[in-house]
């Protein structure tokens, strides 16, 4: 698809491209880019975008149920932001898809067919109001760590979208913290509710960062994204940052981490922890998670039920 600049060979284009990103310059949608850069971006950003759209659903389960006027407003704004983040990321993806003639419609169909995956955490069930807090606090906390890792991504439109997204994530984290603290400082039942919730989410949170290497699950896109300066840190480095930032905070609220072995090894300068079941991770991503099909069905039903609206105005 890429059209060569006058007189430059493919190799010359590539070395110009690499020199540009290595100098910290940004690539824009219209610029020449190697095919595998484009495909890596499409894969990464479409998954990120659709994860926001699918990720709105588990939290949305608690939107109409939020237990006070203030919480009703807060969680509406929070889930709205997730949809808004999805909007921006899908726009970035859609512009990258132009050479292939694909549109948002195709992205939605890819999602329904199971070709476009979404993050493992959004395949999980929510069971109590504590989940609304947990998603805002720790799931978004994990997301903030992976997203800030790409704030300087070589692809300009993605970096700019992430900048907008990350500034809104600050509100999300605080919204989550407010819910969590109300529970940890609340009644015995509320404390049990949040501890049970943490126990359920812990493995999913570890999985969120992806496997440490492709040996773990057989595939990993971290190599190519690092080569092209889309991200700078490995999955494991990000997971370790998450531990460092959040473990002390979790413990300070009187919560227990459901992993007796977890500790910081001073000599190795890293957190030692129990690995989650990476086979389960693979199954979840494939669409065999506890709520995968239900959530897809929810999205599909609403998309198809409203098709007449899009048809009506498409003229």
């Amino acid at each position: 698809m890429s059209v060569l600049e006058k007189g430059l060979s493919e190799e010359e284009q590539l070395s110009k491209f690499m020199a540009k990103i290595e100098a910290g310059e940004k690539i824009e949608a219209d610029d020449w880019m190697p095919e595998d850069y484009r495909t890596a971006l499409i894969k990464l950003i479409s998954m990120h975008g659709i994860s926001e759209i699918m990720g709105a659903l588990p939290e949305k389960e608690w939107v109409p149920k939020a237990p006070s006027l203030k919480r009703k407003l807060g969680i509406m704004a929070k889930v709205q932001d997730e949809m808004g983040h999805g909007q921006m990321l899908l726009r970035v993806t859609e512009d990258l898809l132009k050479p292939y003639g694909k549109t948002r419609e195709d992205l939605m169909q890819d999602l329904f067919k199971g070709d476009l995956k979404f993050h493992n955490v959004f395949h999980m069930a929510t069971k109590s109001w504590a989940d609304a807090g947990m998603v805002g606090w720790l799931v978004d906390g994990a997301a903030i760590i992976t997203q800030t890792n790409m704030l300087n991504a070589s692809y300009g439109p993605y970096a700019r979208a992430l900048k907008r997204i990350c500034s809104e994530e600050v509100f999300h984290a605080q919204h989550g913290e407010a819910i969590i603290m109300a529970l940890t400082e609340g009644t015995v039942e509320q404390k049990l509710m949040i501890q049970e919730c943490l126990n359920r989410w812990w493995d999913s949170l570890l999985m969120f960062f992806g496997p440490a290497s492709k040996q773990t699950t057989g595939s990993s896109k971290q190599d190519i994204t690092m080569k092209y300066r889309i991200r700078t840190k490995t999955n494991e480095e990000l997971r370790q940052i998450f531990f460092t930032k959040y473990i002390p905070r979790i413990l300070s609220l009187g919560l227990t981490i459901p992993d007796e072995t977890i500790h910081f090894d001073q000599e190795k300068q890293e957190w030692i922890y129990q690995q989650p079941d990476w086979n389960e991770f693979k199954e979840i991503i494939k669409g065999n998670g506890p709520k995968s099909q239900e959530r897809l069905d929810l999205r599909r039903t609403s998309y198809e039920t409203n098709k007449w609206v899009r048809d009506a105005l498409a003229k």
Partner: peptide, 22 residues
């Protein structure tokens, strides 16, 4: 209105509608 969140016919509209509900 809040029940509609995430289920509107179009993502951009979903965001706009939610502001109205808020």
């Amino acid at each position: 209105g809040s029940e509609w969140l995430g289920l509107a016919p179009h993502i951009e509209e979903d965001v706009a509608f939610s502001s109205i509900s808020q």
